[in-house]
């Protein structure tokens, strides 16, 4: 099973052979193993986990807003935002959570802004779990 992870600004992974992948979809998490039926799912914010063929280590990314297409050849992931463990800055993630929580409590937000703030919190929380 091949994995492609793409964002508009860069190619993160291209034709990587994997044995399993877990994607955060909007209704929860989905694990995809070789031979999965074709699927198109919209992704939520969370942690993407996959195992490279021939290795037992689980690789992880924080991912937010995107698409996952499963076809017989493999999995294509189109994401708008992606962050690897090396890019995570714990301090800024923590302060981001606090700042957005304060925003949620104290400010009157439009629906769209409310969602953005929630998403930011989720993003930073997932980043801390990497």
């Amino acid at each position: 099973m091949k994995l492609n992870v793409l964002t508009p600004e860069k190619k993160v992974l291209v034709n990587q052979e994997i044995t399993e992948i877990t994607v955060p979809v909007q209704s929860g998490e989905r694990q995809i193993l070789p031979g999965h039926v074709p699927m198109i799912a919209s992704l939520g914010t969370g942690v993407l986990k996959y195992k490279i063929a021939g290795s037992d280590i689980q690789n992880k990314f924080v991912i937010s807003w995107g698409y996952c297409e499963v076809n017989p050849e493999g999995v294509n992931i189109l994401a708008e935002f992606i962050m690897s463990k090396e890019e995570v800055n714990e301090d800024s993630a923590r302060s981001n959570i606090v700042a957005n929580k304060i925003k949620l409590v104290n400010e009157i937000l439009t629906d769209a802004d409310y969602e953005i703030a929630l998403n930011e919190i989720q993003k930073s929380e997932s980043a801390l779990t990497l």
């Binding site: 979809v25 909007q26 209704s27 989905r30 039926v37 074709p38 699927m39 198109i40 799912a41 919209s42 017989p72």
Partner: peptide, 9 residues
């Protein structure tokens, strides 16, 4: 094949 695709949502 594409008729059998699972959509979520």
């Amino acid at each position: 094949a594409s008729n059998d695709i699972i959509f979520d949502p």
